[in-house]
Design a protein around this nucleic acid. Structure first.
Lengths: 138, 138
DNA sequence: CTTGACCTTCCAATGATGGGAAGGTGCATA
DNA sequence: TATGCACCTTCCCATCATTGGAAGGTCAAG
């Protein structure tokens, strides 16, 4: 199977498959006489694993860990669960931060008439006249 | 005021102040004889505006729009409100996506015993045995 | 034998920020 | 005065995951 077919089978772009190989996330693919990469069922399976993990927001380094756990027959599900829980905590943090941003903006938008007059509390808030309550630096 | 003091006064790093100047987000600062940048009250005000907008998650291009609206005396608060509402919609989308990711992971973690046995539903899900319900590509 | 789809490598860009090198400036203190 | 130190300058590179494109090689069908 050429890289294009592997890409279509897994939803991972050919660009990214080559990239994952270059950073050592996946082993170097076999080559045909034409120097084209050649993929088998196991490679497709691994790429599918990677895509699903990325869809869940795992970083490349976390996926690298997961692949090791996946490939290790003696792995402890405890480790996998710990990695997952840590990821959930990260997601909670992001969600909370975005929620605060949204609340602040929503409050401002609600106070803003939205008509032609230039008295806009949103701009005034940003200008520093009334300090924002929910602002956070990142 | 030198760039370091302007940085401390606004919470924007000196690196970023120079960067914002280089991309035209702020006008080129006055220079002293020493070629050091020189900032006044107006510059600090504008940098504070930028920092607050960034704290709220506005992108550089959105902030560029806001700065124009801010500087335009005849601005319509309608435009500012529209920009804010569009930003709220973006935030809602991100929050929803993260929420789905969290639900999927939480479900998996709940099903994962977390003991020594290698029967880990998290790994099995990622491996494709049981397709995830909440997976999204981005 | 040409066309077009596919593949290869390499280089560069995205967005926001940080790190650091190499060198100039300004001020206080020994 | 000299030395040190904090500050400034420009320039290049790194991050992270991904995309785009250029320049060129390979393969199948028409």
């Amino acid at each position: 199977m050429q890289i294009g077919e592997a890409s279509r089978a897994t939803g991972v772009s050919a660009k990214m498959i080559r990239h994952y190989e270059s950073i050592g996330l996946i082993p170097a693919a076999d080559r045909r006489d034409s120097n084209y990469r050649d993929y088998g069922a196991e490679d497709v399976h691994r790429l599918g694993f990677i895509r699903r993990a990325r869809d869940l927001g795992f970083s490349i380094e976390e996926i690298r860990d997961l692949l090791h756990l996946w490939g290790d027959r003696g792995r402890e599900s405890r480790d996998v669960k710990a990695l997952t829980l840590s990821h959930i905590a990260e997601l909670d943090q992001k969600i909370a931060l975005l929620g605060e941003m949204r609340a602040t903006l929503s409050h401002l938008a609600h106070c803003c008439d939205g008509d032609n007059r230039p008295d806009c509390p949103i701009i005034e808030s940003l200008a520093g006249a009334a300090p924002l309550q929910h602002a956070h630096r990142h």
